[in-house]
Design a protein around this nucleic acid. Structure first.
Lengths: 237, 237
DNA sequence: ACCTGAACACCGTTCAAGT
DNA sequence: ACCTGAACACCGTTCAAGT
């Protein structure tokens, strides 16, 4: 993993190399396996060498988020606020799908680096450019919440499969018995799960189309925003 | 912290005492400070004693979530689905405000203990009882997402103040200078922040009414659900 | 200026031994 | 049956020393 230049000399470590390596490692092994020591080992350097380029692990994580933010598309020009917001949120979502660690990192910390503030600023700008009042924009941003980052908490989330381990599932009969017991204990969960499983033909698993669910909620909110804007809604009485 | 019965004998440790102590410790010192070793010390027992009552730290966290779920009110009878859902989500939110660690714990793991599944089941039951199709209920649950747990990612979240440390803020002139710089770099953020600060008279801080923002988004979604239900919306073409 | 080694104060968890 | 002590394989980070 140590990078060498043509003449065999070590490439000098710098902040960007550290952050890129951290993202690559987190992508590959998951966020729990990302430690300063493991990262250093991956780069081919002693743990303490990292501390010349990031102050501590928190700053490392901030830097990783900054790299993620840079992957999100800028607002599309001339498509109207609604399409612009929609496209951008879906672009953020795509960035998140490429970096599964990002959701947890975004959720577990206050993110106020210049890159993050810049993203939020240009996000707010889409509503203002669409003629939204500052007041409505404020509340609408809150309503979007984590959707602005391309995620919401998933309801029927699958267990995180560590990179490497295969997700081994119990044999079919055991599965059927489990389902039966589930249906007895949690009839409503079962009903919803059955219905969506029937739709897409998968018997096990929730059989949800994540993308559909995400856009369903996103559009509900966007439609709500549109309605409020049309009626010149204000939070002030 | 060691509990003794009247005759001075040690009260026998059990799973519930461990979980209660864990919740109390997390409430008091924050989730980062909750370690098996620290918890054991708090209870007055050697670390390994805990492992007779919880398999590992993950199970401890699951158990803590179960205690939280038990604090959420059951569905209110005879008020209609919309009021029932609204009340329950706000009850979940209150439970979360009492236990600041819960949001992170809920977000960082798959929660599928019987207590959690029971909560989800009865939550789904509110929509079904309101005449929602299984299909619509399914998507509506996804749209609620983490709002079902009483939270969404807060946009302008304050830094977490560790229990104990005072939140010291820079002097007023430094603050003003910072705001000016902020406004130059992130004009849209500044505009939104200024407007809401003006509303409630606070100059520093975002000046958001969390409760208002939460209910704003919640009601947008609930209104959207109502509209879809009224028009017999289905995800199947 | 940048990297290193040794050390400190922590983790979660195992195992074999105590009562 | 329940608790203990010692040990293992990890953490993030400090400090003083090397080149």
């Amino acid at each position: 993993m140590v990078q060498h230049s043509k003449d065999g000399q070590r490439v000098r470590l710098n902040r960007d190399r550290v952050l890129q390596a951290a993202v690559a490692l987190a992508d590959k092994t998951g966020i729990e396996a990302l430690s300063m020591r493991r990262l250093a080992q991956d780069i081919g350097v002693v743990p303490m060498a990292l501390y010349k380029h990031v102050a501590n692990k928190d700053e490392l994580l901030d830097g990783m988020v900054d790299l993620l933010v840079a992957e999100i598309d800028p607002p599309a020009p001339d498509v109207g606020w609604k399409a612009a917001v929609r496209l951008r949120v879906l672009s953020a979502r795509n960035a998140l799908l490429r970096h599964p660690w990002a959701r947890q990192v975004l959720e577990s910390r206050i993110n106020r680096t210049p890159a993050v503030l810049g993203y939020m600023d240009s996000f707010i700008g889409m509503f203002l450019a669409g003629g939204f009042s500052v007041d409505l924009t404020h509340h609408v941003m809150h309503a979007l919440g984590s959707r602005m980052w391309g995620f919401t908490q998933e309801l029927f989330q699958e267990p995180v499969t560590r990179a490497g381990e295969p997700a081994l599932s119990p044999p079919a009969e055991a599965m059927a018995a489990m389902l039966e017991q589930m249906a007895a204990l949690y009839p409503n969960v079962a009903q919803v799960a059955m219905a969506s499983a029937h739709d897409d033909g998968s018997v096990v698993g929730p059989g949800c189309d994540d993308q559909f669910e995400f856009e369903f909620a996103l559009d509900l909110l966007l439609d709500g925003f549109e309605r409020l804007h049309a009626q010149a809604w204000s939070s002030r009485p």
